[in-house]
Amino acid sequence: MEYYCSYQERCYKEVEEKLFLLKASNLEKEKVLMYLIENNFINEERFAKSFVRGKFNYKNWGKIRIKNELKFRNLSNKLIEIALKEIDENNYVEKFHLLAEKNWETIKERKGPKKNKKFVDFLSRKGYESHLIYEKLRELDN
């Protein structure tokens, strides 16, 4: 389990699920998890910050999707807010605009409701805020 936690950041839930798959008893799970936490193999804050940086920089995810994914992994709201500070606001907006413009150009539909829907759906799935999406749509649709 040390190796499992050391080659990639893991959260408590992921390690717990792995132990379940390995059919560890409750007592064994508890001992292993305590050991991993005490020896800093599991650190939720470090995991959250790494997750935010990775998903934003490499997958181009927005804050909403990142936040939902971290909630799914049972991280606290406070920890999520701390981790989201890893994203520079100017960089976030710049990446959003680049992604939006690139997507707008790749949609084969002519201007109109179909193209607008595809555009909005794509950016919503990526987890960007609706006010940013509709603002950009108004800008590009003119």
Rank of each mutant, 00 (worst) to 15 (best):
N43V: 03
Y7F: 11
F56G: 01
E69K: 13
K114D: 11
G62M: 08
E86L: 02
Y134R: 10
L123E: 06
I87A: 00
I80Q: 03
R10Y: 02
L98V: 05
N74F: 12
N60R: 12
R73C: 01
S130I: 15
L22E: 08
E101M: 12
L36T: 06
N39A: 08
D141R: 15
R138V: 09
S76M: 07
K23T: 12
E81R: 06
L27S: 14
G112Q: 13
R125Y: 14
C5A: 05
E139C: 11
L99G: 05
Y35H: 07
E16A: 06
P113G: 09
R53G: 00
K63V: 12
Y7V: 09
K23R: 13
R73M: 12
Y7T: 08
K29D: 04
L79Q: 04
Y58W: 00
S25D: 00
F122H: 10
L22W: 08
R110P: 05
D121Y: 14
M34F: 13
E16P: 04
Y3W: 06
F72Q: 15
F56P: 01
A48H: 01
A83F: 00
Y92C: 01
E28P: 02
N39R: 15
I42E: 01
C5Q: 05
L137E: 12
L22K: 06
D88T: 03
G112L: 10
K78I: 13
R46I: 02
F72E: 15
L70T: 05
L19K: 00
S76F: 05
K117W: 11
S50I: 00
K55D: 07
S76C: 09
L27Q: 15
A100Q: 01
E86H: 03
G54E: 09
K126I: 06
E45V: 00
G62V: 10
K13D: 05
L137T: 06
K102W: 03
N74P: 04
K118Q: 14
E109M: 10
F72K: 15
L79I: 04
R46N: 02
E109Q: 13
K67G: 03
E2P: 04
Y7H: 09
S124C: 12
Q8C: 10
E81W: 05
D121N: 14
T106H: 12
K18H: 12
N103Y: 11
L137S: 07
E135W: 13
K102V: 02
G112F: 08
E30Y: 04
I42M: 01
N40T: 13
N90S: 13
R125F: 15
N74W: 10
K23W: 05
E129T: 10
N116L: 07
E139P: 10
S50H: 01
R125A: 15
L123G: 07
L98H: 13
L84E: 10
K59E: 12
K63Q: 10
L123S: 09
S130T: 07
E94K: 15
E129R: 14
K49P: 02
T106L: 15
W104M: 10
E81H: 08
N77P: 11
S130P: 10
K29I: 03
